[in-house]
Write a protein that binds this DNA or RNA. Structure first.
Lengths: 352, 352
DNA sequence: CTGAAAGCGCTTACAG
DNA sequence: CTGAAAGCGCTTACAG
């Protein structure tokens, strides 16, 4: 492994000059710059990142907080893969890498003294590694840890959860508007008895999609019936039981907006089991556009999120803060546009 | 941020002693050890990782090579999320983190001089960061890069692709055996005209599953008909067109083993379009057990892979090499057992 | 069991 | 435009 010292000697310049060639090329005379560059290429020289980080106090890594231990088993992020792809390639374009933070008791106990304020050890790792920033993916039980980050002053962007802090922001879909698209579509098909299977009210997407549902109905002059509002938890099973209850109502809905595709799939199964045909007896619209949405029978009409857009937007936001320095303004929260994807479960093909 | 120097001063000991408390606790007298530990906790001291890495020449990070740029668009790893969960938590247990390597032209050109031998810049990053080891996820076009790693002497474990090198190993499913399970199941249901939609022969899983198919037929005394062997590329579309061809044969098969669930789903769609009922007219068995397998109509009978087992096994293998040092033997390739999951597409419920 | 010292490979004011 | 020097925060033989 060539070091900067060797390279400097072979070029007949000082370490400082070599360092400048790579970090402030304009401050070096073209002649020496070229000489150093050529020699560097010849020796296949690569500056050591640990040394750079140690000297500058900041690494070229962004942390990804995604709890894999405390999470409810069987849970899967609806589009983690797309998110990762968007995130990783956008960071790559800036020369940054993504560090998936080890979490959970095991990891933490291997380290020096656990901190009470940081039970899972996230912040710990960030400090040890001098990370440039951090991207937070909610797993439902990280509220305190996320608040810690947001307050820490480190560039920090969360996915689908509102965080507040000096250099903290977040990205979500335009959830209320997306829910509105779904509901207006059902209204346009002639439905008036439209129920919803909402996500948990404490989550941002859950609350906003429900608000969008209410707003769209109100706007159309359709009163919201509280017996038409069922709350699920985004998991399939909750969609199933919510649908069962809705269909058992004295006056069942003719259409259902499920605030998540997993719940919509559960609802579909429940309808099938209840001998209720979709979309003929009850129309169904979901939210997310996960892969299975197109494959279930009937194919699910749903509000598509801009999946890789999450990753790209998150990367753009961290990078803006990282490269802008402390003086740069914190980017405003990002709202990604959604798209209604009409398939078969809403009955648009054969409106009543 | 407390440094080791401050901690040492406050404890009235040397830097060396503090360092030993954390790295070789037994070499320190219990009395001073406790004093240092208590003070460390009080000050919330955390050793800086960059400094450690610089001093020791080895980081506590394992690289994950997963190309997101060169990959065919729309491609998704069948179970990346499970793999990551298994990998991450197993590494965490050893106190290691997972670094997703930035790849692609953009990232690389931001760095000092690109190398001809390492066009995508993987090895580059590994060197710069003194990574402890690396896990390789094939994206179909990384053969040269993988070979580079395997030869480099760095602890290296690949997923589903055989690599060869001094400290290189890999983990796959027992693909031949798994294919055998599928075929024997179909034989047991009375089928004799069993076709296969194989994966690409140049991939390990593709080749092995095909071999398993052949072996199982041979063992049962059923001759292999070459017109019953269609090759796909693991994508859905290829399963679709392969199935079309098989069904158009003068003597079409009564059962098909698709070497991947995506292809099986494509085959299912093709059968439906051809007016061919599954499983009544043709039985179908897949491989992988991806999420949609249970959701298509009819639900897909398939050979399930041990998804998170891949991550765990990969982590175990790197860790064995990393913690064992250069002297430790390179772990043998791992073969994960598969499980036949019987659903509706094979017709086991109503054997002919 | 403990300390003084050298070293890991960089960056960055400070002079010139 | 360039160099000498200090410093980043650790680890690890080497003595004692």
């Amino acid at each position: 492994m060539t070091t900067i010292r060797e390279l400097a000697q072979l070029c007949g310049v000082s370490l400082a000059t070599v360092s400048r060639v790579f970090n402030k090329p304009d401050s070096v005379s073209p002649k020496t710059r070229e000489r150093v560059e050529r020699m560097a290429r010849e020796l296949d020289y690569r500056p050591n990142e640990s040394a750079r980080t140690l000297a500058t106090g900041r690494s070229t890594m962004v942390g990804l907080v995604w709890d894999t231990d405390h999470r409810r088993s069987g849970w899967r992020h609806p589009f983690l893969q797309d998110l990762l792809i968007g995130l990783k390639s956008a960071l790559s374009a800036h020369g940054y890498h993504l560090l998936m933070l080890a979490t959970g008791e095991a990891a933490h106990h291997r380290q020096v003294g656990a901190s009470l304020a940081d039970p899972v050890g996230y912040v710990d790792t960030v400090r040890r590694h001098d990370l440039a920033g951090v991207v937070l993916i909610d797993s439902g039980s990280d509220a305190e840890a996320f608040a810690l980050f947001a307050q820490s002053g480190l560039p920090c962007v969360a996915i689908d959860v509102a965080v507040d802090g000096p250099r903290a922001t977040y990205v979500t879909s335009a959830n209320a508007e997306g829910a509105g698209q779904a509901v207006r579509h059902l209204l346009g098909l002639g439905h008036r008895r439209i129920a919803t299977i909402a996500g948990p009210a404490r989550t941002r997407p859950g609350a906003d999609r429900l608000a969008g549902y209410r707003a769209a109905l109100a706007e159309a002059g359709v009163p919201v019936r509280e017996d038409y509002v069922a709350e699920g938890d985004f998991y399939r099973a909750s969609g199933h039981s919510a649908m069962r209850k809705l269909l058992a109502l004295p006056e069942p809905p003719t259409a259902v907006f499920a605030a998540g595709d997993e719940m919509a799939v559960g609802a579909l199964l429940a309808a099938r089991q209840a001998g209720c045909r979709v979309p003929d007896d009850v129309a169904l619209v979901g939210f997310d556009d996960i892969e299975v949405a197109a494959l279930v029978e009937p194919a699910l009409t749903t509000v598509a999120q801009d999946k890789s857009g999450f990753g790209r937007a998150a990367a753009a936001a961290v990078m803006a803060m990282v490269e802008g320095g402390k003086a740069a303004p914190t980017p405003a929260p990002v709202e990604l546009a959604t798209t209604l994807v009409v398939r078969d479960s809403c009955g648009a093909a054969a409106p009543r």
